[in-house]
């Protein structure tokens, strides 16, 4: 009889612990980190693409120098923002990161627009392939950001709502900043197209 009661108590206790979010918050936390690393990867991928694009455009005769310089400088600023694991808990640095990336988006948009006036450049296969890669990267950034926003929303609800907020508080997990979907948004970045 005693053994049965112990067993039943064990089962009930595990259900209670499972329900309070003490373990669940770990999964939510890991989901946020994984979604963030995807965001970071995609921005990095874009930064890696820029030198190639600049080199190709430079090859076009007398390309407007100011536009190119703006892209190079914006890339330098975007890659100089220190990004480590703690950035996802720091609203100020996340905002700084976001603004630097947004500035790079705008300068790239201008570069593509200016390139419209260079028919030889536009017709070259190298440039077309680079545009496809840039377009693909911008799209991946948009997807990664969208998923990050929704994963953080899920996490934030989990750490604030009873009863899971109890387990989250025990693990010292609080709400996180997220991307602002309306203002500095990669989705409204100048559209790269042919």
């Amino acid at each position: 009889m005693h053994r049965r009661i112990h067993l039943a108590a064990f089962v009930i206790a595990s259900v209670v612990v499972a329900g309070c979010g003490y373990n669940g918050v770990i999964d939510k936390d890991e989901a946020v980190k994984a979604a963030w690393s995807e965001v970071e990867n995609q921005y990095q991928r874009r930064a890696d693409l820029v030198p190639n694009l600049v080199a190709t455009v430079k090859g076009a005769s007398a390309f407007e120098a100011g536009t190119l310089t703006a892209v190079i400088e914006a890339r330098a600023r975007a890659t100089s923002v220190r990004v480590d694991a703690s950035i996802i808990d720091d609203p100020k640095r996340l905002e700084e990161f976001q603004q630097a990336q947004q500035a790079l988006s705008s300068s790239l948009g201008r570069l593509i627009a200016v390139a419209e006036a260079y028919p030889a450049l536009k017709a070259s296969d190298t440039y077309r392939d680079l545009l496809v890669q840039l377009e693909g990267t911008e799209n991946r950034i948009a997807v990664a950001r969208g998923r990050y926003i929704s994963v953080v929303a899920d996490y934030n609800a989990y750490v604030q709502r009873l009863p899971t907020s109890i387990g989250a508080a025990l693990r010292k997990k609080s709400t996180r900043p997220t991307f602002n979907a309306t203002t500095h948004d990669a989705e409204i970045a100048p559209k790269v197209g042919f």
């Binding site: 995807e38 496809v132 377009e135 693909g136 799209n139 991946r140 948009a142 997807v143 990664a144 197209g193 042919f194």
Partner: peptide
């Protein structure tokens, strides 16, 4: 799963 890879054409 998909992460936005691929290309768009016109």
């Amino acid at each position: 799963r998909f992460g936005g890879g691929g290309a768009t054409g016109r």
